[in-house]
């Protein structure tokens, strides 16, 4: 497991990746198990709510389907927040944490380039995020199987892909900011603020008409604005999410190669 930086990074985070994945699996299964009962009782309630509230949580018709219900929770709520926390933490840990704990000098004392370290850490981030996202989908399938209803497999795959992409966006923001600055707090703070503000905008836009154009500022719009579980992933939304990961990745690499490392 210690034959390269990629495998060591995966190994170092293995326990927490498994715990996060177990949590996502449990959440997916629990919500899928609850869907038939909760959806039935909520559907009637939602019909009585004003339209703008329905616009936020989903219409009664959507909510009555597993895809609509699961879009609201976990994919718009708890599991999304978990993936933000997971990916930002991993991104920050890649370079900034190693630098601040004074092991980066030692690592780079070996015949490897900074670019090599950066790519291996990035590959580890890409690999790390897959398991918790997949575990969530598996949990949903298990719940649906137990409760004997079907879920759109294509929708679930596309929803999972969208969750993976938004996780990469925040994770690579953290990784690249950490690599560019060597600061753990900045590497966590900026992506967390972007995620939190995006979340707030995503919640407020359906409620306040005058804010509607703001939705394009929110990272969540590109993640779930078009409801990939129900409607499939929107290609340009996926491209925006990829861009939010790739552009900082490139800037971070450039800065990491050009700056002084902290002693």
């Amino acid at each position: 497991m210690y034959s390269n930086i990629f495998l060591k990074t995966i190994r170092d985070g293995q326990r927490s990746t498994l715990l996060f994945s177990a949590g996502q699996l449990a959440i997916g299964a629990l919500l899928a198990l609850l869907f038939p009962d909760v959806a039935a009782s909520f559907a009637g309630m939602i019909e009585d709510l004003p339209e703008f509230i329905q616009a936020f949580i989903g219409s009664a018709a959507e909510f009555a389907t597993p895809e609509g219900f699961l879009t609201a929770d976990p994919y718009s709520a708890i599991s999304l927040v978990i993936m933000f926390a997971f990916s930002i933490n991993r991104g920050m840990g890649a370079i900034a944490a190693e630098e601040q704990s004074h092991t980066l000098d030692q690592l780079l004392g070996n015949p490897i380039t900074r670019t090599h370290v950066y790519f291996q850490k990035s590959l580890a981030l890409i690999a790390d995020c897959v398991l918790p996202v997949a575990a969530l989908a598996v949990g949903i399938l298990i719940g649906a199987l137990i409760m004997d209803y079907s879920v759109s497999l294509s929708g679930l795959l596309q929803m999972s892909l969208s969750l993976l992409l938004v996780s990469y966006a925040t994770g690579f923001l953290a990784l690249s900011i950490g690599a560019a600055t060597g600061s753990k707090s900045i590497a966590i703070g900026i992506p967390a603020a972007i995620a939190a503000i995006g979340y707030l905008i995503h919640i407020l836009v359906p409620l306040v008409d005058s804010l509607s154009s703001l939705k394009y500022v929110s990272i969540l719009h590109y993640y779930i604005g078009d409801k990939p579980f129900i409607n499939g992933i929107t290609p340009w939304h996926a491209l925006v999410l990829i861009g939010v990961a790739v552009v900082p990745f490139l800037v971070g690499l450039y800065r990491f190669n050009g700056r002084d490392l902290r002693g």
């Binding site: 092991t103 030692q106 780079l108 070996n110 015949p111 490897i112 380039t113």
Partner: peptide, 20 residues
């Protein structure tokens, strides 16, 4: 740098490494 460090053994000051 890589060609140089291939031939170098380095001990950093205040040596710390991976505690786990």
């Amino acid at each position: 740098g890589t060609d140089i460090r291939r031939r170098v053994g380095y001990l950093p000051g205040d040596f710390v490494t991976y505690d786990h």
